[in-house]
């Protein structure tokens, strides 16, 4: 997803006025991004994005393929660090701390900002060990019963407990695709993160599994700040309260989901959601 040229007219302030006011109403945002650029080598993939993420709302990133929404998502927990050529400038704050500051610990950051990927990627271990992985490496459980409790709680929150409680020792890879993805969400929940980033979590799943995940996302709202990248506008409309529309590396528009879909401020947003391109 490398951007060629970003010759479009720069957007002065993509954030809706209504949202500006809401900031005061809801206190500080959980995550705040200002002037974020992401480069792959010399190519600029994200250009000057400002965005706020709240715990109370599910935030959806939409936009055509290659628009940079996943790239931006990966910048939020510094997963871009794993790509040698990627570089991020601007500031992204988590509870007011700059996550790219030298004092920020990336391990701790990722424990606080979890991630669920496009394709379910359970580890080739048992279901139990998949969930227990995070608590174990971070030392969050004092004892075996502690760990058992965390595993059960996480699976329950992910709505998977009833389905797998009798086969916790089976391999995580033996589950169905939808179950695998819920396992991955449970895995992320197990370390009790503050924000969960989801990168097109349903794109590899069938409609029934997708519905389950969407239900789950709704249940998790409020407890965790959730950011979801999605290809499907219907999904964004169903699960999110805030929507950001990305195009060619720019954040075109960010606002209430209902506003974006019914009354977009930008022509390009209008064109995208009415299906002129994408």
């Amino acid at each position: 997803m490398v951007m060629s040229e970003t010759t479009d007219s720069p957007i002065a302030n993509p954030v809706n006025k209504s949202l500006e006011n809401e900031n005061i109403a809801h206190g500080e945002p959980k995550m705040r991004a200002r002037g974020v650029d992401v480069y792959y080598g010399d190519k600029k993939a994200i250009d000057g994005v400002d965005i706020d993420v709240y715990t109370e709302y599910v935030t959806a990133f939409i936009g055509p393929s290659g628009c940079g929404k996943s790239t931006f998502l990966r910048a939020l927990n510094r997963m871009n660090d794993t790509i040698p050529s990627a570089r991020v400038t601007g500031t992204i704050e988590l509870d007011g701390e700059d996550i790219y500051a030298s004092g920020m610990d990336v391990v701790q950051l990722r424990a606080r900002v979890g991630m669920v990927f496009q394709k379910p990627n359970p580890f080739p271990k048992s279901i139990y060990d998949n969930i227990a992985y995070g608590p174990k490496i971070h030392g969050l459980a004092e004892s075996k019963p502690d760990l058992d409790e965390i595993v059960e709680k996480s699976l329950r929150r992910a709505g998977l407990w009833e389905e797998v409680k009798d086969r916790l020792a089976d391999s995580g890879t033996a589950l169905s695709g939808g179950q695998q993805q819920r396992l991955c969400i449970a895995r992320a929940i197990a370390v009790d993160p503050e924000v969960i980033l989801m990168d097109e979590p349903c794109s590899a799943l069938d409609p029934i599994a997708t519905a389950k995940i969407e239900e789950l996302i709704d249940e998790l709202r409020g407890r965790y700040g959730i950011v979801i990248v999605t290809h499907s506008m219907q999904q964004a409309a169903r699960v999110s309260q805030r929507t950001a529309f990305f195009h060619l590396g720019h954040l075109v528009e960010y606002g209430h989901t209902s506003d974006i879909f019914t009354n977009p401020a930008e022509q390009r947003t209008q064109d995208y959601i009415t299906g002129r391109y994408g």
């Binding site: 391990v107 701790q108 424990a111 606080r112 030392g139 969050l140 993160p193 503050e194």
Partner: peptide, 16 residues
């Protein structure tokens, strides 16, 4: 969050 305690930071040193 459990990942923001002093004990976690101490463990983190060891992990590094």
């Amino acid at each position: 969050g459990p990942t923001r305690t002093a004990a976690f930071e101490a463990r983190l040193k060891k992990r590094y």
